[in-house]
Simulated scan of single mutants.
Amino acid sequence: MPLPFLTADRAFDASAEDIALPFDDHDKWRRPYRPGPWRVAAAASMLLLASFILLAGMVIAFAGELSGAAVCLGLALVVIACALRLLRLGAWVSRRGVRRVGFFTTTTVPWNQVTAVRTVQQPVKWLGFPRTVQGQALIVVRQGGGTIAPLLTDSNADFLARGEAFDRAADTVEAWGDEYRRR
């Protein structure tokens, strides 16, 4: 089963040309960076936990307790759904705008409502926990001065200890913004 949200866009392959928007189909929502190792490790751990829950449910079902097996199946499905949602978190771009996908909410801002996409120094959450550290964040400034939560930070699960990857991703999102805000 192909999982397109796990594959890296060809903008970051070694053989790709050095252009910001190398895709033929700009209408498709794309994440302009690879998911980070912390995010992938957390999702893999959740899927491992789900496999143990499913195994426990199978043992319970063979023991004849079908209601307990159904509870295990439901719990495993919830854990699998959370792992898949965790992999979808992040910034997504297309010709239509920029999208910030959170665990529970998704915010989409059309490019015609964006006045600036820029990297700023500010306190950012460390791996999404309440603890903040000084770092860089990619923010979107909407018309009227409003902002949404940072699209990317250098201390989130995708870019922790990967400064170059953060810079590449921020530059790519800024390039998408520069290209489509003009239209």
Rank of each mutant, 00 (worst) to 15 (best):
T132C: 05
S155T: 08
T153S: 14
V133A: 12
N156T: 03
G163E: 12
A165G: 13
A169Q: 08
T147H: 11
V141Q: 12
V141K: 03
D158P: 09
S155K: 13
V133K: 03
D154N: 15
V140N: 04
A157K: 00
F166K: 05
P150A: 05
A161P: 00
I139R: 12
V141I: 14
Q143E: 15
T147Y: 06
V141F: 00
D158C: 10
V140S: 02
A157Q: 12
A157R: 08
G144F: 11
V140Q: 02
F166V: 10
T147F: 09
T153F: 05
A137G: 01
I139Y: 03
A161L: 14
L151N: 11
T153Y: 01
A157M: 15
A157G: 06
E164C: 02
R142S: 01
I148E: 09
F166Y: 13
V141D: 14
F166P: 04
T132V: 15
G146M: 12
A137R: 04
D167I: 11
P150I: 06
P150Q: 02
Q143M: 07
P150V: 06
A165P: 09
L152Q: 04
G146L: 10
Q134G: 10
F159M: 07
V141S: 11
E164N: 10
E164D: 14
L138R: 08
R162V: 01
I139C: 06
P150T: 04
E164L: 14
R162W: 08
V133L: 11
L138C: 14
L152M: 15
R168I: 07
A161Y: 13
E164V: 12
L152I: 13
I148P: 05
A149W: 06
N156P: 02
N156Q: 13
A169N: 10
L138N: 08
L138S: 05
Q134M: 10
G146N: 11
T132D: 00
D167N: 07
P150D: 02
G163L: 06
F159L: 10
I139S: 02
A137E: 02
V141L: 10
R162M: 06
G144Q: 05
F159S: 01
Q143W: 00
V140A: 04
P150Y: 07
G135R: 03
V133M: 06
A165N: 14
L152C: 08
Q134A: 11
Q134K: 11
A149T: 11
R168A: 12
T153R: 02
L151T: 10
L138Q: 09
G145I: 09
D158N: 15
L160V: 12
E164H: 14
P150S: 05
V140K: 05
Q134P: 04
G135L: 10
A161E: 09
G145V: 04
V141M: 03
Q143P: 00
D154I: 06
D158S: 14
R168P: 03
Q136P: 00
F159R: 02
D154E: 02
G163A: 15
R162I: 01
V141C: 07
V140Y: 01
Q134R: 09
D167S: 14
G135S: 03
T153W: 06
A165K: 08
T147C: 13
R168M: 11
G145C: 09
G144L: 10
T132H: 09
A161I: 03
D167V: 03
Q136L: 15
F159I: 07
D158M: 09
G144R: 05
E164S: 13
Q136D: 12
R142Q: 14
D167Q: 13
R162Y: 10
A169E: 05
Q134E: 11
N156M: 12
R168V: 09
